[in-house]
Write a protein that binds this DNA or RNA. Structure first.
Lengths: 164, 164
DNA sequence: CACTCTTATGGTTGCCCCAAGCAACGAATA
DNA sequence: TATTCGTTGCTTGGGGCAACCATAAGAGTG
């Protein structure tokens, strides 16, 4: 178990790492914001899938996923085939143009990171990846965990855990 | 130097870590969104400072910082004292209410992380912190703090020891 | 067994909030 | 006068919730 000071520092670093994300977003091709890029990347990595699966991988709400997908589909980078097994669902698949786009994305990202992380060793990068991945896992399944607060000092009107 | 596949994976993890941030944001007290929390935290940790310094620490644009600060000041959590040495600048300082709020923040964050990271060791957390910190450094402030100017004269009001 | 009626699930859309950047500006410095 | 600190207006991206539609999956009932 880690100590308290570290927790706060971790929170700090997490909030500050947004700058890195934004920096990477700055090199994205036109018409391809971060959300779209993530969709393409995940489709490229995991192959065809349905929205719900994609939403889970993106770790965002279905509605958000839906919009990202719509954006990407509107540009012809993916197709939405009706799922033969379930007519309400649609299977997402990269198009050749999508692959091209993905390739361009990959190229830019790699280039940027190669520049920025020039002095990082393979191992260090791997370690960071592992730790972030584990962090996500640790937080991951808490979509249902009620995160009970210890007697708050201020009255709290925090969002009800929903799921009504 | 790391290899390409890792770069893409790192990009993925970075984009996915947003879920963790959002999850933490979900437990914030009312009227205190993440931006405000960050302001309070940084003021608590580094003491009084001016906007520009805060913006640098937050790694965001001055305009964003200004709004966060305005929000926080409007709730009485900080005060903006005129800088005697530079009348266009203002020194930010936590008020007692701000300290309370910060305390509450700290409590909630710590509690959440203690729950989520129950099976993390002290060392693992420290490693993640170090790596993320280094990541930020590598991306360095290629935009937010290129100010290692050979300033012949350093102003005394803003000079902070070793903000590495 | 077939045919409803009810409930659950996959996705979409509308409306909202937060965060961030840029640009233009006013005020004070240098 | 030219710069710098900070504020404000405007825009964009991203995310959530709730309401909604369509389909699926059960639960009864004849």
């Amino acid at each position: 178990m880690a100590e308290q000071a570290q927790f706060e520092e971790l929170a700090r670093q997490l909030s500050a790492v947004g700058a890195v994300k934004r920096d990477m977003g700055r090199i994205l091709p036109p018409d391809c914001p971060a959300g779209s890029a993530a969709v393409l990347t995940l489709l490229g990595r995991h192959g065809d899938m349905r929205m719900s699966k994609l939403a889970e991988l993106l770790a965002v709400d279905m509605s958000v996923t839906s919009r990202h997908v719509a954006h990407v589909a509107a540009r012809g980078w993916i197709e939405r085939h009706p799922d033969p097994a379930d007519k309400r669902s649609r299977i997402l698949r990269l198009t050749p143009e999508g692959l091209e786009q993905l390739d361009e994305l990959s190229r830019r990202t790699t280039h940027l990171l190669a520049e920025r992380l020039a002095d990082w060793t393979d191992e260090e990068v791997g370690q960071l990846i592992r730790l972030m991945s584990r962090l996500r896992t640790s937080f991951g399944d808490c979509r249902s965990a009620p995160l009970r607060l210890p007697a708050p000092v201020v009255e709290e009107t925090t969002r009800t855990p929903a799921s009504t």
